[in-house]
Design a binder for these strands. Structure first.
Lengths: 219, 219, 219, 219
DNA sequence: CATGAATGAGACTTCATTCAT
DNA sequence: TATGAATGAAGTCTCATTCAT
């Protein structure tokens, strides 16, 4: 989970500080961009991408409307950046952790844990992944597709690896399994985000889901 | 004051004539309302809900812009009606077919076949189900939720039935299985709609997916 | 919804009689035009000219929307016809009664009685005269002006007559008196229509107003 | 009365800059809000409230269409603000001047002078008061009524004061006199605005009208 | 870098009017 | 003559984006 980002943003009760001389110096890094992205997650999750006005994101981030455009070319581009940023986080987790694992079943189980772990750590983020990213046709069809395909292929590769190693049945198409697996994760996260969203629920779900899927894939 | 009047002029109980003149020939009830809904599926699928202008739906349906408003109160309501109509179709299929089947495994398999069968029959419809209905926050949060919950509960009921009969393992929560199953179907339909969308592909997918899920649920 | 109450208080409780074969035969006269004008008075008074939809007038009159256009060229023309019709009624009263009277003071008093008598008999009509006819710029500037001027001139003529006969002071312009008198009547009718509109109130008002004006005009 | 004509067509290029930039010089209210209100008076007077498009007011004010909505919530609210603003001006005149006067007759005469003086100073304003404010049913019935009643009561109070002091006859209802007086002023202003609208005409009218009314009210 | 008032294109929706029946 | 579903022009208002300060 990454509650870090969540906690980070509400810090200054009065960020409305126009003339701070040179903006957050030193440490913080050029957080303004980060603050805007975090604000976008919160606001988009609450109102949806199209119903959210740029000025609302600005307000939530504690910056002026125009400032958004110093960091992002457009509202669409803000969403695209958010997608890229958050997906990158997810993928890097996987790239780091999967290679450590010995076999395909372990890797597949880990994929479930990571995805549900990340989304389950922040309800708003879960909604962004399962709903918001699907609200911009442009993002969906023009930008996300390749990244999404890559992600599915990565899962499919694990399935193939398992089939080759005799761990998984060979009478199912790896890509189909990947799609279904991703869909299952997405569906669980969606219903969690739209429902009660109890902490920890997704972690438990990951375990049970892995049990079912792995047994289903037994040779 | 004026709002009152607004509601006043609704409902043209009997659309005039049967002007299939040059539009929708053959099948599909030349009913204007139906023509508009069908057109909405096509246009929404192509451009997304928000990017679609009401006038585009009207044009695709072969009616004047204002005519849309004789049958639907607003663009949002058009989407809601579409949701209601298409979901109803899906549910009626299930209500008709499931009771005929002898046990939970057969029912679960049939659910997959029906859902992928319906969506796999019309690419645009698949996109409407997997993408468009998620684009309106209002629809998603205010209207669809209850129907969606009912659908998930129906699947969960089948799982419970299977557990009670000793057909399914009991160490997984039925509702979780339902969510994951629906998610898997949704994910498969989504990738199919956004990809090549080859005819028959979803029917084959249903079989393989059922094989995996049912084995995964074995006690 | 509110139209119901409107229709309720008219003479024929159920004018909604679409298929009477050949419309009101014999007696009734070609009332349809009259019914539409009466309905217009009621609806316009309640909602104002612009906020009233032609379909509302039609409904209140118990005819189809299109029927309005068999009797009036347009919505504007309907208002113009209403103006002409009602003003004609008022003027004919005056033309009939004034000549009978012996002198200017009596005539002036009678003018007040007639105008307040007519408007005070029907609250809706009072509102139409004092408010509605002023809502259409076209009516006000293009059509009503001449009739209105004629009316004011008629009053001014009475004042001149009184001055010539030594009944009225000569240090005031007759047309100014006419304008002020008409304005006073209009103001009284307006406040009556917008307020409680108690029956008989205007008749009493006419007497008091005449007392003041006539004394004010004494030489 | 439209010194704003200078700033009227800023449409293209550079409406940028701070307020007074180079437009409204000297006197108060180079403020954009004021420019819009002034423009509204001119355009409404010419075309009527309903026939006036918001874009026309914007153009006349030298601002973009959207700018109107930065200062007023809606077209209706623009009219309401105009009403409030202009009525306030009129009332403040009275509140300032009436207390200085020794008796009711003097006060009543002053009321006529003020009202006709204000309206007679700007033909468009006269039309706005006598016609435009009556064109919005919402304004008339929901908002203006209380202010209007207060104004009439103020006049009636002067009449009562005169009656108590023995200056006015007591056989007429003060409120009736107030209504008639206001109506007379309104009628005179209306005919003036719709007619030739000669400068100074209303000032003369005020004197004559006061002569008649005050004599009419003698005990 | 930051601000936020201003811009203006464009969408949804209304409703007077038409005309086939 | 009467009907009322259909039409489509046109207006209000929104909001992403800009740019002078």
């Amino acid at each position: 989970m990454s509650p870090s980002s969540a906690g980070a943003r509400r810090a200054p009760a009065k960020p409305r500080r126009a003339p701070e001389g040179g903006a957050q110096p030193g440490r913080g890094g050029g957080d303004k961009r980060e603050r805007i992205l975090d604000a976008a997650v919160r606001v988009f999750a609450r109102k949806g991408f199209h119903a959210t006005r740029v000025s609302e994101v600005a307000k939530a981030a504690g910056v002026a409307d125009g400032t958004i455009y110093l960091y992002f070319e457009s509202k669409d581009e803000l969403l695209r950046s958010l997608f890229e940023d958050r997906v990158e986080t997810l993928l890097s987790h996987m790239k780091t952790e999967l290679p450590k694992l010995p076999n395909a079943p372990a890797k597949l189980r880990r994929i479930l844990e990571i995805q549900l772990g990340v989304l389950g750590g922040e309800r708003d983020l879960a909604e962004v992944f399962t709903v918001i990213f699907r609200q911009s046709t442009k993002l969906l069809k023009q930008y996300a597709a390749p990244k999404f395909t890559a992600y599915l292929n990565a899962i499919a590769a694990v399935v193939s690896e398992g089939q080759a190693a005799g761990d998984f049945r060979v009478d199912v198409a790896p890509l189909l399994v990947a799609r279904a697996t991703w869909g299952a994760l997405d569906g669980i996260a969606l219903t969690w985000a739209l429902g009660r969203a109890e902490r920890g629920a997704l972690a438990r779900a990951a375990g049970q889901l892995a049990d079912v899927i792995l047994r289903g894939l037994l040779p």
